[in-house]
């Protein structure tokens, strides 16, 4: 495999829970990300899927150095991103870009689309000479399928999907090496979603970009990702190639996730064998002991409460799976 461009080791982010009006006391921690390790190779797409609230966006922010980790390391091209000089910080900011989950709040409502997409050029003036910027911005708008004539409009004049494309255009402005995409297509209709995915694909081939692609839509992730990581309550529970995860999943949570994927075929309503998870999603402030999935797992045994299963290759799982009883199972697969 190609060189590792981004290395994450035992990354932890806990948010303090505070109480009290005048004297704020910390009464607990939300364990948003709790010991995640991963490698991103040059030119590859790593998909990340998982339950809502399991820490995907927090992980994305940690990778971007937008949040300080409680502990652990993020290394970019072998260098610890927390120990970079200001000049190196700037380079990092340029080379890793984020496309955010929420197209509504991530765009400044008082800036025109031209200003938003061109903002990276203000911060990194050497990327495009001043006289050239307007044309570059229009090019970027065209690339993401927006009308270049709309350069002077404001975000609220665009639909949700159109706004998401503005975010993508801005992320592309500086020709970064890594793009962290947090739900980049979930607000888009499938035809524009297909355009954006084709676009990401094409940019990847052209510039050897690496993507971390966070999405809820498992069929979208399957289409675009080379490898996939599945997260549950702040932890990575299964990692593998797209076939490992989609054809040979061995972690019960992954299996439940895949079984719940809605199939775009109304005649499949009866045929589907969805694994309905029992119980509530536990609070990340107070995750279950041992395996965090055990409160909802139909295979849980005593050991699951006492021993935390490690993310590792097992006799019954050819790829890393964090389950004491990892095993393949027939599930209805995502299209």
């Amino acid at each position: 495999m190609s060189e590792v461009i981004l290395e994450v080791r035992d990354l932890v982010k806990h948010f303090p829970i505070r109480q009290g009006i005048v004297f704020k006391r910390t009464i607990g921690q939300i364990k948003a990300v709790d010991g995640v390790s991963l490698d991103l190779h040059k030119g590859e797409t790593l998909g990340i899927v998982g339950e809502s609230g399991c820490g995907k966006s927090t992980l994305a922010k940690l990778l971007m150095n937008l949040e300080k980790p409680t502990s652990g390391e993020v290394r970019y091209q072998g260098r610890d991103v927390l120990r970079l000089s200001p000049a190196e910080q700037r380079k990092l900011r340029r080379n890793i870009q984020l496309v955010m989950q929420d197209p509504y709040t991530s765009l400044n409502p008082r800036m025109t689309v031209g200003d938003i997409v061109g903002e990276p050029f203000e911060i990194h003036p050497d990327a495009a000479p001043k006289g050239d910027r307007r044309r570059k911005v229009q090019e970027l708008l065209d690339v993401v399928g927006l009308n270049p004539e709309h350069i002077n409009r404001y975000p609220h004049q665009f639909s949700g999907g159109q706004r998401q494309r503005i975010g993508i255009a801005r992320a592309l402005a500086l020709k970064p090496e890594v793009i962290v995409c947090d739900e980049p297509v979930s607000a888009l209709d499938v035809s524009i979603q297909a355009q954006v995915m084709n676009l990401l694909d094409q940019l990847q081939t052209e510039f050897n970009l690496s993507y971390i692609f966070i999405a809820h839509d498992l069929s979208v992730v399957r289409h675009i990702a080379d490898r996939v990581g599945v997260m549950y309550l702040g932890k990575m529970v299964e990692v593998g190639t797209d076939d490992d995860i989609y054809v040979r999943p061995t972690h019960p949570y992954t299996q439940a996730l895949l079984s719940a994927v809605p199939v775009p075929d109304p005649t499949a309503r009866q045929r589907k064998a969805v694994i309905r998870l029992e119980g509530d999603v536990p609070s990340p402030a107070n995750p279950p002991s041992g395996c965090r999935f055990r409160t909802r797992c139909w295979k849980a045994q005593e050991i699951c409460a006492t021993e935390t299963p490690l993310l590792q290759i097992r006799p019954t799982s050819g790829h890393p799976s964090a389950c004491h009883f990892a095993q393949e199972r027939d599930v209805v697969h995502a299209g």
Binding site: G145, L146, N147, E149, Q162, D189, V190, S191, I192, Q193, A194, Q195, M197, N198, D201, S219, V220, R222, H223, D242, P264, G335
Partner: peptide, 26 residues
């Protein structure tokens, strides 16, 4: 028809997805 045709499908992995050509109407 075109919309349903743009869905990612298993047999299209690694290939370009179908899209609707052109821009949304002004």
């Amino acid at each position: 028809l075109a919309l349903l045709d743009s869905l990612p499908r298993l047999d299209l992995k690694g290939q370009e997805l179908n899209t609707i050509k052109g821009l949304p109407p002004n």
